[in-house]
Design a protein around this nucleic acid. Sequence first.
DNA 1: ATGGCTTCGTCACGAAGA
Length: 260
Amino acid sequence: MKVASFNINGIKARLPALLDWLKEAEPDVAILQEIKSVDEGFPRDPIEELGYQVETHGQKSFNGVALLSKLPLEDVRRGLPGDETDEQARWIEATVVGEHKALRICGLYLPNGNPAPGPKYDYKLAWMARQKARAKELLEQEEPFLMAGDYNVIPQDEDAKRPEAWTTDALALPQSRAAFRDLVNLGFTEAFRARNTAPGHYTFWDYQAGAWNRDDGIRIDHFLLSPEAADLMQDCGIDKGVRGREKPSDHVPIWVEFAL
DNA sequence: ATGGCTTCGTCACGAAGA
């Protein structure tokens, strides 16, 4: 079973690029972030025509996450628990039922947090604390589960082409990195780094300043796997080439193949 | 050396992203 995550930066602007990628990458499950659409405005039809069940958690203009699956999705849950006043659509969960086992999937779009310090950074750290609480609950099930998406965290210096440019940024501040480590250290496997320790692998290149042409990227999209999911991982990767296409998102897809 | 863009919503530009 191939599970992929892709921050598409607007479903309306990205529909052709998304459909092209789905047809060629053929993920069984695609976790989308920044759909920037309300649920009613999401173009379900062309995606359903490719054989996907579509579950969205959207809002107007900003944020918004979605799950696409060729296998049945059960127990869909929208929103990150822990703060009833939080109106930002950044979290969606569902269980995908495979041939032999089920996999709980959490799709997330973690707050950017800039400028830091400030209220947006406080929101980011509070959101990460809520994510940690939810992760603990799910780990206690001792079943395969994963949390994937745009974490808006550069875990280490080797995850940026120019780490010195990010030292005061919310994506790389020590507190952000500590919160990410704290989460991983609950017992998760960070899929990409479990298989590849080399620098120079990125998932985001800014639209500005010719970042793509200079390969001036950062690695901020991640898969965290529970022990039971990590045992099933067969391969993972980054679809870097997608960034060089017509009208691309500023992120590229990442994926994990499971023996499921 | 520096700055360079793209999206959405609503209607020419502001806000947000990272």
